[in-house]
Structure formats: structure tokens, C-alpha cells
Design a protein around this nucleic acid. Sequence first.
DNA 1: GTCTATAGTACGATAGAC
DNA 2: GTCTATCGTACTATAGAC
Lengths: 219, 219
Amino acid sequence: MQDTKTRILDAAERLLADRGLAACSIRAVTAAAGVNLGAVNYHFRTKQDLIQAVFARRLKPLNRERLAELDACEARAGDRAVPLEDLLHAFLAPAMNLERDGTAFVRLLGRMYTEPYLDSQRIFAAELGEVVQRFFRAFHRTLPQLPPEELFWRLFFTVAIMAQTLAAGSLLRHISKGLCNPSDLQGAQIRLIQFAGAGLGAPVAGTRKSRKAGKGGSS
Amino acid sequence: MQDTKTRILDAAERLLADRGLAACSIRAVTAAAGVNLGAVNYHFRTKQDLIQAVFARRLKPLNRERLAELDACEARAGDRAVPLEDLLHAFLAPAMNLERDGTAFVRLLGRMYTEPYLDSQRIFAAELGEVVQRFFRAFHRTLPQLPPEELFWRLFFTVAIMAQTLAAGSLLRHISKGLCNPSDLQGAQIRLIQFAGAGLGAPVAGTRKSRKAGKGGSS
DNA sequence: GTCTATAGTACGATAGAC
DNA sequence: GTCTATCGTACTATAGAC
């Protein structure tokens, strides 16, 4: 049996991910953790502070791992740009592995990405910003033909897919009538890298030097 | 001044989108609508019924428009498969236009896609399922090399990008330090179609025969 | 450090006047 | 059809016993 603080963090992580930020009550957390309501106030003060603590516990190691992977990629590439798939792998795989470890954290990550509760989005953006900057430079080197604005958009799309896949994957099972298994994280990761890699590397809309014809007529 | 029922629906749409489903209280809705608390109970009974009514009001016309666009695409294509970009346009443009009309509905759509509140996701999946089936067949015809499972995954990714772009676009402005403007819906739509088009058309991971998919300049 | 007990507030829902 | 008034409940946060 772990200490109270850890039990609260574990229970909060799971319930926040399962129910959403606003719908998860402190009482539900303490009940699930088997501790008393007052313990949350002692260890974390408010609900917002608890959410932030749950978030920080996983995110800092996660981002450290991402940057370590990125460093390894760049060392491997030497003077050349890092291959696109390697960059995507460095960013995505650490998150996927966390989920595989049985934590609900990555689903929570997806929630904080979307749900406007308290200042969660600001916390999220602040923590992610640092990693985004580092990866942005690496992606820019690999895809020098993309203007920075375009690259930001596409990285945003990439993170959006990751967040939704991990936060709302169960919808996929439902819509595909069981054909797709969103719990297959390995398969999801491969598909995500394939899809986002193609999207990131797509020619810039409006330029002519792509092999593909421009956009067909709209009505 | 519109009637009470419409005022409630309008206020609820905006507040649900702004605050999230769980964090939006009926009292906040009635206060914003300038009507009495009891009116919600009279017109909609429960909060869940109100959410469903907000949702149904826009989604049915939206999906009808999507299917009409799809019909037009297929008529234009004749015996051939509909070009990929046209399919994406038929699916995405009606939603983008709704947002342009000043409604907050598409942000709400993004919320319901992600936030696990009451049975919102079930409602969402049920309403969307019909359109997905129709579009699935059309996409399958345009991309016959993709196994159904693969195509479902990629359509899921595509919808994920759309939902997140419209629900959490403000994050993009923040992370890009103002470089990207997520309110530019026209630009977002073009970029989304470009990105998702390349992702959908990417070769299946593990196979060697790449088709026309536009991987521009990855190393 | 953990618990009990509770203050204070906001909520969803509804009954009943008009 | 709209409003007032209110019931019962659940919540966050905290004070104080142990």
C-alpha cells in the first residue's frame, strides 16, 4: 500500500481521464483512493492544484524522454536532417509507452488539450511549449520547404490526432463497429506516424511544384 | 427578440462550447439568455435533453448538407471515383461554414467528440455514424488500396483534426506565439484538406507500392 | 499526517402561482 | 408559456480533533 499522496494522485489521474476535468469530483477521487476527503486539502489544497500535480508528475519525465529521443535522433543523423519518421517517433513513442504502462495519463493529456476547465489549457500550453520549440526547430530542418506558419499548423494537426486517439479512441471502436481496436497502441502509433508523416510532408497548398493536381472544383 | 426556446438554445450552444459540457450550468444558460430558470425545465426537461436539443438543431441540417455535397461530387464524377480533395471538402466545408455564420456549434461538436459527459459521446456517434457510413463508401472507392480497417483509422484521424482545430484552436495561437491565426477558417480548411488528403492517401505502412500520395520533401 | 464534522455555496429539478 | 420559490443533493474548502 502506497502513501496517501500517491494513492490520491493515481486515483485522480484515472478519474480525471475517465470523467473529464469538471465532472471529476474530489470526493470521487478520495473515495476511489480509499482516503479521507480532507487529505486532498492537506496535500494539494485545491482541486486545481491537484490537477496540476497529477499533470506535472508525468509530463516532466515524459518531455525529458522526448527530448532525449530527439537528441539521440540528431546524434544519429550527424550533419543531415533527422528523417521525418524518426522525429515523429521521438515525439509520440514516449507518450504511447506511458499509456502502455497502465497509466491513464495520456488520456488526461488529451482532456487538458481540449477541455476548458480552470486554467488547464494554459498549464498545458506552458508545459508543452518548451518541447514544441525544440521539435519545431528539428522539424523545420527536416522540412525546410515549409514556411514556419505552415509547419506550426501541421504540428498542431499532428498533436491533435495524438490527443484524440488517446482520449477518445473508444469512439473509433464504436464507429467502425468493432473493426478497429484503439487499444492496439502499437498499431495506432504506426498508423499515426504514417498518416502524420504524409500530412507533414505534403506540398504546400497553392504551390505548383507538387506532383499532384490542385484542388478539384468545389460546388 | 426571439422566443424563449430559441434564446435558450442559442445561449446554451455558446456556453456549452465555451465552458465544456459539465462546467456549463443551466443557471448560467438561463442568465445569459435572460430567461427564467424554470423555462428550461418546461421546454427541455433535463440538462441532458437540452444538450441533445442544441446538438440536434444544427447537426441534422449539417449532415444533410454534407450528404448533398457528396451527392453533387458523385454526380460530377460520373463513373469515376470522386477526387479525394472533393470528398474532404464535402465533409469539412459545411462545418466550417457553420462556424463562419457565428454559431459556436462546431466548437461544441469538438467538445462532444472528446468530453465524456452523460451520454454525449453515444449521441454523437449515433448521429455521425450515418454520415460516416456514406462517406466511408465514397472514400473506399477513391482509395481502393486501403483495407477497411486502415481507412477507418484514417477517417478517424481526419475527424480528430477537424474537431480539435475547431474546439481548441486558441491553443494554436498561443503555442505559435501569434504566428498562426486559428480564426482564419478559410486557411484552416485549406490546410486541413491538404494535410488530411496526404495522410489518407499515404501508402499503407509495411507495403512497398506507394501510390500517388504526396510526400513532398521528406529526406 | 490523517481523520471527522461542517460551513457555505451551487447545482438540477420541480411544484405551483400567474 | 413564463415566473417565483424551494426541495434535496452534491460540491469545494476548511476548521479542529486525534
